[in-house]
Nucleic acid binder design. Structure first.
Lengths: 198, 198
DNA sequence: GATAGAATGTTTACGGTGCTCACATTACCA
DNA sequence: TGGTAATGTGAGCACCGTAAACATTCTATC
C-alpha cells in the first residue's frame, strides 16, 4: 500500500498536490482550502507550511501539474498536428480538458500567474511552445508569433466561454461540432472578403 | 450631496456594489471580502445580507455592472464596427479593459456563471449579441453564430492570456500592436492555405 | 397624527480559513 | 551514540461568511 514510509509521511509535497487535485475533481469548485488538503493527506493544518510557503505556492504546484496533464491530452489528441483539421482536433481536446476538469483548469488560469514560481512558468512556456510548433507546421507562411498567439487565444477563449456557461456545453459532441465550426468560420472569414482579397 | 437620506442608508445595495468595485480597483486582487465591502460602505458586516442572499449574489451584481461598463467601452471604441480594422479596434478596447480593471474582469469571468442571476445572464447575453452584430456586418457571408463565437473567444482569450502574464503586456501600445497582428495573422491564415481550403 | 407592521441595520456568535510560533518527533550524519 | 536539521503537531491569532436575536426607522392604515 503505502509506497515508502521512510519519512514522516513519505512524500508530503507530492501527497498534498495529489490530495488537492482529488478535492478539485470531487467538489467541482475552485475553492481549495489548505486545511482541507491537509486533512485529506492526513496531516495537521500546519504541516503543508514545511513544504509550501503559503496557499498560493501549493496552488501553483497544482497548476503546474495541470499544465502537464493538459499537454499530455493535447499530444494524445494528435502527436504532431500539421493541418487545420488536426489543429481543430487539438482545440477540441483543449476545451474538453477544461470541461472535464473545470476546477483544475480554473486554478491554472483564473488566478494571476505567479512569475516567481519556476515550475509554473516553465509549464506554460512549454504549452506556448507546443502551440507555436503546431502553427509553424500548419501555416508555414504566416508570422509564427502572431498566429501562435491568436490560435492559443482562440482555443483558450473557447474553453473559458464553454466553462462559464456562455456557450452550450450540453454534450461533448455538440461542443466538438461547434468548436470545429467556429474555427473553420474564422479561418474562412477572409476568403469571402468582399471587394477582393484585401 | 447625499441624494436621498430617506432610508437608513440611502441605497445600500448600490452603495455596496460601488464600494466593491472601488476595492477591486484599489487592491488589484480578486479577493472580495463581504466584510471589507460592508466596512467600506460604512455598515455592519451583516447589513449586506438584507439585500444580497450571500457573497456570491453581491459578486454577481458587481459582475453585471462590469459587463455594462465593458459594453460601454466597446461601443466607445467604435459605435458600429463593420470592417476587420474596426473589429480590431474593439478587440483592443476589450483587452485593455481587462488590463485596466483586472480584478473586475476576473470577477466577471473567472467564477462559474451564476445562471440564477438574471442581471448577469442578461448582461452577458447583451455582450454576445453585440459581438454577433459586429460579425454580421463585417463578414456578411459567414455563419454568424459560428463566427461570432470564434471572434468572441479569440478576443476573450487574448484578454486572459495578457491578464495572466502569458503574453507581454508591458505597455498599452505594445499590446495594441500585438493584438492587431494576431488577429490579422489569423484572418490571413487560410488565404495562404496550402492545397486548397480543405 | 398615532400606531402597527414591514423594512433595514446592529450585535453577538459559530465554525471555517490562512498563517505563525513554540514544541515534539523523526531522520540522518559524524 | 549523540547532535542537528528536517519534519509534523498544537494552540492561537485575525479574518472570513453567515445566522439569529435585537434595535431602529420607514410606511401605511385608522
Amino acid at each position: 500500500m503505502s509506497p515508502k514510509p521512510t519519512y514522516h509521511h513519505g512524500d508530503l509535497p507530492a501527497a498534498l498536490v495529489r490530495a488537492a487535485i482529488e478535492l478539485l475533481q470531487e467538489s467541482g469548485e475552485t475553492e481549495l482550502s489548505l486545511r482541507a488538503v491537509a486533512r485529506r493527506a492526513g496531516v495537521s493544518p500546519a504541516a503543508p507550511y514545511r513544504h509550501y510557503a503559503d496557499r498560493e505556492a501549493l496552488v501553483s504546484a497544482v497548476a503546474a501539474v495541470g499544465y502537464r496533464e493538459l499537454a499530455e491530452r493535447l499530444v494524445a489528441a494528435h502527436p504532431s498536428p500539421s493541418t487545420p483539421e488536426q489543429l481543430v482536433g487539438v482545440a477540441i481536446a483543449y476545451v474538453q480538458f477544461a470541461l472535464q476538469r473545470p476546477a483544475l483548469f480554473r486554478i491554472m488560469f483564473a488566478e494571476p500567474c505567479d512569475r516567481d514560481n519556476d515550475e509554473r512558468v516553465a509549464a506554460t512556456a512549454a504549452l506556448a511552445q507546443y502551440v507555436r510548433a503546431i502553427v509553424e507546421r500548419t501555416f508555414p507562411h504566416a508570422d509564427p508569433d502572431a498566429l501562435a498567439t491568436a490560435v492559443w487565444a482562440l482555443v483558450h477563449g473557447l474553453a473559458f466561454l464553454y466553462l462559464d456557461g456562455k456557450l452550450d456545453a450540453s454534450t461533448p459532441s455538440v461542443v466538438a461540432e461547434r468548436i470545429a465550426a467556429a474555427i473553420q468560420a474564422l479561418l474562412a472569414a477572409t476568403t469571402i472578403d468582399p471587394g477582393g482579397a484585401g
